[in-house]
Design a protein around this nucleic acid. Structure first.
Length: 261
DNA sequence: AATGGGGTCAACCGCGGTCCA
DNA sequence: CTGGACCGCGGTTGACCCCAT
């Protein structure tokens, strides 16, 4: 599976690690630690470079490393975190105890990337369909009473507020929770690297859905995340959830929109 | 049985960040 | 401030595996 061991022009061994080398490295680190990777191979009696030793320890020999197949939960978490953080494998690895960044990266490219891309392609089609449905529903929607109208809309200066309904973002962002939560647009953008276009999209929809839009929460679910609902929920359907997380009145006062991930 | 092509994954490489003299 | 040493991260490579033909 891996390149055969060989010696480079400097006499340094490269390629696959032997059991004997593993044993030497493990024994040395367990006894003395790894305060200096550059010096370590010499002291441990290995013909490897420090980098190679570090990689071998970190990915395979460390007692913290969990080898074996990825569980469904781990895969789901990787997909969610990759959506949020991008290819920050070391950051993703922090959230999966026992898994190395290299292992996660390999698993992503080998197993998850293609299936995720397929999902996203389907999601895009579904989203277009749902936007069409929303516009249709909006056109046929009865007029709201004047008391509920836009007159209550007082946008905070310089801050658009977004209610994020996401489990995925709860993993790393203190400003979001496992259910709906209330955060500023900047928090939201900080929480998820892929969120920018999502937010931009939502505010494009704001323009389309002007007028009565602000009198009702606008829900758009996004299948690109593994945690989202696949159904388009009415504002009433979600009202109970909202009330638990933030004052409905407060949301309306601040001209918020709802985003279901 | 032979072969070729895609998938997998351990390991390498290069670059950027940090630390220290 | 600068430059060298070191470390860590992410992209890429390449040998082996597996399956279809």
């Amino acid at each position: 599976m891996v390149m055969a061991a060989f010696y480079d022009k400097n006499g340094r061994k490269k390629g696959a690690w032997s059991e004997d080398e593993d044993k030497k490295l493990r024994t040395y680190i367990e006894r003395y630690g790894h305060y200096n990777w550059r010096e370590l191979p010499k002291l441990a009696g290995l013909s490897r470079c420090g980098k190679s030793c570090r990689l071998r320890w970190k990915n395979y020999l460390s007692p913290n490393v969990k080898l074996g197949n990825f569980s469904k939960e781990e895969e789901d978490l990787i997909v969610a975190l990759q959506n949020k953080l991008g290819n920050k494998w070391s950051k993703i690895a922090e959230k999966l105890p026992g898994r190395s960044d290299n292992e996660i990266k390999n698993h992503w490219h080998a197993h998850l990337k293609t299936s995720t891309q397929k999902d996203q392609a389907m999601s895009s089609n579904n989203k277009d369909r749902r936007i069409g449905s929303l516009k249709k529903a909006y056109k046929s929607k009865p007029k709201v009473s004047p008391t509920n109208k836009k007159s209550n809309f007082k946008p905070q200066q310089g801050v658009e507020n977004v209610v994020v309904n996401t489990m995925a973002s709860s993993q790393s962002s203190p400003s979001t929770t496992a259910t709906s939560s209330y955060c500023s647009l900047s928090d939201f953008n900080n929480a998820t690297s892929s969120s920018h276009d999502v937010v931009t999209q939502s505010f494009e929809y704001n323009n389309i859905m002007e007028g009565d839009f602000w009198t009702e929460p606008f829900i758009l679910d996004d299948n690109s995340s593994i945690y989202q609902s696949d159904t388009l929920l009415s504002p009433l359907d979600l009202a109970d959830d909202y009330i638990n997380q933030a004052s409905y009145q407060d949301i309306m006062m601040n001209g918020s929109c709802f985003w279901s991930m």
